[in-house]
Computed example of a mutant assay.
Amino acid sequence: MTKKEFLRQYLDLSREIDAKLEEVRRYRALATKVTQSLAPDKVQCSQGNKMEAIIAKLVDLEREVDAEIDQMIEIRAAVKAAIDNAPDSKHRTLLRHRYINGKTWEQIAVEMHYSYMHVCRLHGEALDKLIM
């Protein structure tokens, strides 16, 4: 695993969790959606089965998300420790902005008052000097 891949794993997992949380919200909306058929001559038993399937999927997905959140916390601690060990404060700041806060190069350049190209060069230096 390269240094960049190591640093990116926190944000990558965070984005995966966000996508799964969106899926959880959709399943919760389905589970709480109530529809009733007003036809007195038909009796449907399949509605309960659909609801059970949705709730089962929701529970499984929530367990997955919980496990991934635990993993993300561990990864964040490892990434933050590696960044904190960078020898230069400019490098630490840049790496935190990028790999912990998920900011774009343009946002980092504005916040650090550097040009885009200087931020790119600084990032290369930071990766070279990073000790993992």
Rank of each mutant, 00 (worst) to 15 (best):
T93F: 04
V110P: 12
K80E: 13
D70I: 07
R96T: 12
P87S: 00
E111C: 11
L61P: 01
G102F: 09
A86L: 12
Q107E: 13
A67M: 13
G102E: 04
V119D: 13
R96A: 05
K90I: 04
V79Y: 10
H113E: 06
A56I: 03
A77G: 00
H118I: 03
L61T: 06
A109H: 12
S89H: 08
K50T: 03
L61K: 07
A86K: 00
I108T: 15
E74W: 02
L58Q: 00
M112A: 04
V79I: 08
M117A: 15
R98N: 13
I54S: 00
I100R: 01
A77F: 01
E52A: 01
S115C: 12
R76I: 06
A82S: 07
I73F: 02
A86I: 08
V59G: 00
R76Y: 11
R63M: 06
M51Q: 11
Y116M: 10
N85I: 05
N101S: 05
R76A: 10
L94G: 11
V119G: 07
V119H: 05
V110I: 15
Y114D: 10
K103R: 14
G102M: 03
I73Q: 07
K90D: 15
Y114M: 05
T104M: 13
P87G: 04
E111G: 15
H118N: 14
Q71L: 08
K57V: 00
K90G: 10
I75M: 00
S89K: 14
V65R: 02
H97G: 11
M51S: 02
Y116N: 13
P87A: 07
L61Y: 04
A56R: 11
M112N: 12
A78K: 07
L58C: 05
A86D: 03
T104K: 12
Y116F: 15
W105E: 11
M112L: 14
D88L: 12
S115V: 11
I55S: 02
Y114G: 05
A81G: 13
L94S: 08
I83F: 01
R96S: 08
N85V: 05
H91I: 05
D88W: 09
K50I: 04
A56F: 02
H91F: 11
M51I: 00
Y114T: 08
R98S: 12
K50V: 10
A78F: 03
E62K: 04
I73E: 10
H113V: 10
E64H: 06
D60Y: 06
V119F: 08
H97Y: 15
W105H: 08
K50H: 06
L61S: 03
I100V: 14
